[in-house]
């Protein structure tokens, strides 16, 4: 059996954050994203969801934060992330990010990542990987 077969990806603890409109407003400012669909604007109220939606990158930040907390600098210097957004995050809501180990391949620890709302709706899913050493 190869050493890779024996290796296990580091565990990543799930991370839950409350996303409300105040946080979305702060993110819009910090990320310099002026899109009015994220704020209490006419565009948001007349849009598909009749209210502001959180930035997808704000939701994705929870995944990166969870990976950083578990893996540290190796995530910042070798980590990879690929996701698709599946549903809008409409504040206020609690979002939980998780990364489930999917084995080791090519020297990389691989994960299935996802974010869910507090009512179980899938907000995004995808994959992540990080070098084992």
């Amino acid at each position: 059996m190869s050493s890779e077969a024996l290796a296990q990806p580091p565990a990543v603890a799930p991370l839950t954050r409350h996303i409300d409109q105040a946080l979305v407003d702060r993110y819009a400012s910090a990320a310099r994203d002026p899109n009015p669909i994220h704020r209490d604007t006419v565009e948001a109220r007349e849009g598909s969801y009749s209210r502001p939606i959180a930035h997808g990158m704000l939701v994705l930040a929870l995944v990166s934060e969870a990976m950083t907390a578990a893996i540290g600098e190796r995530w910042a210097a070798g980590g990879s992330l690929s996701v698709r957004w599946r549903a809008p995050a409409i504040p206020p809501l609690d979002v939980t990010a998780s990364a489930e180990p999917r084995g080791v391949e090519g020297g990389l620890a691989r994960y299935a990542v996802r974010c869910e709302s507090d009512d179980g709706e899938l907000l995004l899913d995808g994959t992540a990987s990080v070098p084992l050493s």
Binding site: S29, A31, L60, E65, E73, G79
Partner: peptide, 29 residues
């Protein structure tokens, strides 16, 4: 400001020596 705006805990956000990696991604976006 980015850490405040993502409600990140210090342990998972910007350690002493480097920027949060997804902040670099957010800069590209």
């Amino acid at each position: 400001a980015y850490l405040d705006a993502t409600a990140a805990a210090p342990a998972g956000g910007a350690p002493s020596g480097w920027l949060p990696p997804l902040q670099l991604g957010a800069l590209l976006v």
